[in-house]
């Protein structure tokens, strides 16, 4: 084979692992893209929403939805289905959760916001979804989420739906997953 052909070959052979790595790079790129644009309904923890506090915000409907993933047997429901809130104020909502089984289980709630372009304006100071919940058999709890909706919310949005899906992660309960969730929530501190 002539040297020119060897050069072409070498370039192409290098391109293959690079594209393989690019496939994996799409994973963090996807998360960064969702964070920056605030799409995908992903909500991240924010520590300094203080400057968003205002007195005369506009009224807004905030609806809560709870879903059990697959065969997750726990009872999981919002204390109130709907709250009337105003933008630029802190509110605390609670979700009731009960382990109805006879074994200790660990759960992870995953949030989502609709419409998706509201997600960037929903600021959570505290959320049970930032950590895993472990409940003993028959144990129950009220899980709080403390949030504020920024007044920069697009005008046409009059209702926001905050939905949580609760997953059984007893089997997954290892440090790697916990670490992963932790990192993801802290990447987005503004």
């Amino acid at each position: 084979m002539n040297p020119e052909a060897k050069k072409t070959l070498r370039r192409l052979v290098i391109a293959v692992p690079l594209m393989f790595a690019f496939g994996f790079a799409l994973v963090p790129l996807y998360n960064v893209f969702c964070e920056v644009t605030g799409i995908n309904g992903k909500v991240f923890q924010s520590d300094n929403a203080e400057k968003l506090v205002i007195e005369d915000g506009r009224p807004l409907g905030l609806q809560f939805i709870s879903t059990n993933n697959e065969n997750m047997p726990w009872t999981f429901k919002p204390s109130e289905d709907v709250m009337t809130i105003s933008t630029g104020k802190y509110y605390t909502a609670t979700f009731y959760v009960k382990n109805t089984t006879n074994k200790t289980m660990t759960a992870q709630a995953v949030p989502s916001v609709a419409p998706s372009n509201a997600a960037a304006h929903l600021k959570k100071l505290e959320c049970f979804c930032f950590e895993q919940q472990e409940l003993k058999p028959g144990e129950d709890a009220l899980l709080p989420v403390r949030l504020l909706v920024s007044d920069e919310l697009p005008e046409n949005i009059e209702n926001i739906i905050l939905s949580y899906t609760i997953f059984d992660v007893t089997e997954y309960d290892d440090e790697a997953v916990a670490q992963h969730m932790h990192e993801e929530h802290h990447e987005m501190e503004h």
Binding site: V16, P17, L18, M19, F20, A21, F22, G23, F24, L26, V27, N69, Q108, V110, T165, F167, D168, V169, Y172, D174, A176, V177, H180, M181, E184
Partner: peptide, 28 residues
């Protein structure tokens, strides 16, 4: 693009057998 496909099925393999959560919402 074939290496990207290989990456996608490799991620599936890791999710199924090695406890990663590329596509599993419960694990992030």
């Amino acid at each position: 693009v074939m290496p990207v496909l290989a990456g996608a099925v490799t991620m599936m393999l890791m999710d199924i057998h090695f406890g990663t959560s590329f596509f599993n919402a419960a694990g992030g």
